[in-house]
Design a protein around this nucleic acid. Structure first.
Lengths: 143, 143
DNA sequence: GCAACTTCAATGATACATCATACACCTCTG
DNA sequence: CAGAGGTGTATGATGTATCATTGAAGTTGC
């Protein structure tokens, strides 16, 4: 049945893409995971987000973000200093090493995308994106 | 950039679908995860597969399948008896409880799919599937 | 038959997902 | 200002992903 394999294809495609992406990052000698990279990039763009805010942007929950940030801090890709006006939070900033890592990953990511999307037109991509967005909306809880 | 959000949409859609699917299984009072269900179903259809074979069919690696099978055995959804002609393997079979679980999940899965795919035509679905398959192929290692 | 190779399953290490909870800290309201 | 409720972070429990390795068991070649 057709509807039974669409989610299989979805799963298969995203997983294979992640494998390719991670393999190419590894091959470039960069010690970071895709998910850590996603979070690091968000923090670079905006260093005043809560963990939940970050989670919204990378589609992860707060607990996952918390653990990823911990790893980024352990690896010195991120620094944290207490925020004076809110004792619960810290100000996270991308370190120099973190910056260098982001710079190194950037071209790899671009190349990964172009490999993955080879043979797909702009229109194809737009269509897939729209249909996926529709599926996403359909799956949202009634609220 | 368009290409930068296609993978985001992909990720988002599949995750939200999995959330919906799991939530509805939970709500139906069935104690199984999506991934366990996938594996159990494959074993039901063919009870003479190696863990790697099963992995190929559900797009998981052997290690993941091994752990999922262990959980299915622990929960008595599966039985294992030694195979006489190969001391490394066991014959896995879906237990009565496993069968009942599969039967109970089936309608929930169908409903999940129809919820998720509401508003998408057959042609849309086919197109998405084909484009995702193309992406998958593009991401395969050079071999 | 034995050595070399291959196959199969289990498991350790590490990372992420999800749900739930705990706890500290903030804010608002009476 | 005190208590109630909301927000932000950390962490436990459980499940899955990925890579690597181990060890047992099968197979092949000679």
């Amino acid at each position: 049945m057709l509807s039974s394999i669409i989610f299989y294809s979805l799963d298969k495609a995203i997983r294979q893409y992640r494998k390719l992406a991670q393999a190419n990052i590894d091959r470039a000698g960069i010690a970071i995971t895709i998910d850590q990279w996603l979070v690091l990039r968000v923090i670079q763009e905006n260093d005043d987000l809560t963990q939940s805010d970050i989670g919204d942007r990378v589609f992860k929950d707060q607990a996952s973000v918390a653990r990823i940030i911990r790893l980024l801090l352990d690896q010195r890709l991120l620094t944290a200093e207490p925020l004076p006006h809110d004792g619960r939070r810290t100000r996270l900033r991308v370190s120099l090493l973190g910056q260098q890592t982001l710079d190194a990953v950037q071209p790899v990511v671009l190349q990964n995308r172009s490999i993955a999307l080879e043979g797909l037109s702009e229109a194809d991509i737009r269509l897939v994106r729209d249909l996926l967005e529709r599926i996403y909306q359909n799956c949202l809880p009634p609220a």
